[in-house]
Nucleic acid binder design. Structure first.
Lengths: 151, 151
DNA sequence: CTAATTGCTAAACTTAACTTTAGGTCAAGG
DNA sequence: CCTTGACCTAAAGTTAAGTTTAGCAATTAG
């Protein structure tokens, strides 16, 4: 337990609450990059705890791993990220979040006037030309909201 | 094109913008229940257009098919649903939506104070005992936010 | 020093929500 | 009547985000 030995994957798992397999998976996806000790085992440093924290929170917000990776890739390569680094990357992040909340709220208000009033037919329903595509959430191809109302 | 022949699956697809395969899939999941014509082909009636509309909108809001089915199952079995029926089922729906928006907003505000300030470490971060689990979005098992900060 | 943990890799399995493919049937127009 | 285009079923493939399994190697506790 010398100061500079780094954390094992199990230790990281315990401290974050993530499964060991999940952490390995994040490495495979390029979200973290541990080094290896003499015996070939992964070693992480403290900064990785914060990266994992960020990943977990970002997922709660509904971001995909590639999106999260894009954010994390903006962190400095060489040195340990500072508070300022984290603040910076959380900015663009916040913007995306705001957009998501706005869209959801608009949709809810439309729901009020549209499904709520029983007008839910394809002709002239505001929900069919949606404000924006509400985030490409969920797996698999996705054909959202239509076209040609009265073909 | 007699008044009472019902719509073919292709017609439905064209009017909703859904893929034919998606509509068949919804039937398999019990979200719609077309009848068959003499030749064994599916026939839908106009009410199904509205059911599909509801499905599409509900998905935009982030609901899963089982959840949507639960709502649709509250529609009257025998007769064609009325405006009042749709209004009623949209109520519980709206409540869930409101909750989702609230959670997201709270999280965003925490992001402000928490990641934004650089405090993103496991000890004493408000985001680690999250307000609520933010919706079981996304496939696969999910271990959310932790425990035992300083084991 | 040895047994019990913990870690390693590669590959297969899981869930949701569909799509694609393969091989055949039905319906509508000319 | 025949040919196209729409439909049918069943089964397999797809994506995301992991988990599970199998068979070994490295660490650590006693």
């Amino acid at each position: 337990m010398a100061v500079n030995e780094g954390l094992s994957i199990g230790a990281l798992a315990k401290r974050t609450g993530l499964a060991v397999s999940a952490i390995r998976y994040y490495e495979a996806q390029g979200l973290i990059a541990p080094w290896r000790n003499a015996g070939g085992q992964r070693r992480f440093d403290r900064a990785d705890l914060r990266r994992l924290s960020f990943i977990m929170i970002a997922q709660q917000f509904g971001f995909t791993l590639p999106q999260i990776k894009a954010e994390l890739d903006q962190l400095p390569g060489g040195r340990t990220p500072t508070k300022a680094d984290w603040t910076r990357i959380s900015q663009s992040f916040r913007a995306a979040l705001d957009a998501r909340i706005t869209t959801l709220t608009k949709l809810r208000d439309n729901l009020n006037g549209c499904i709520g009033c029983g007008c839910l037919s394809l002709e002239a329903c505001a929900l069919y030309n949606p404000v924006d595509r509400a985030g490409e959430k969920g797996p698999g191809p996705r054909y959202l909201m239509g076209d040609e109302p009265a073909a």
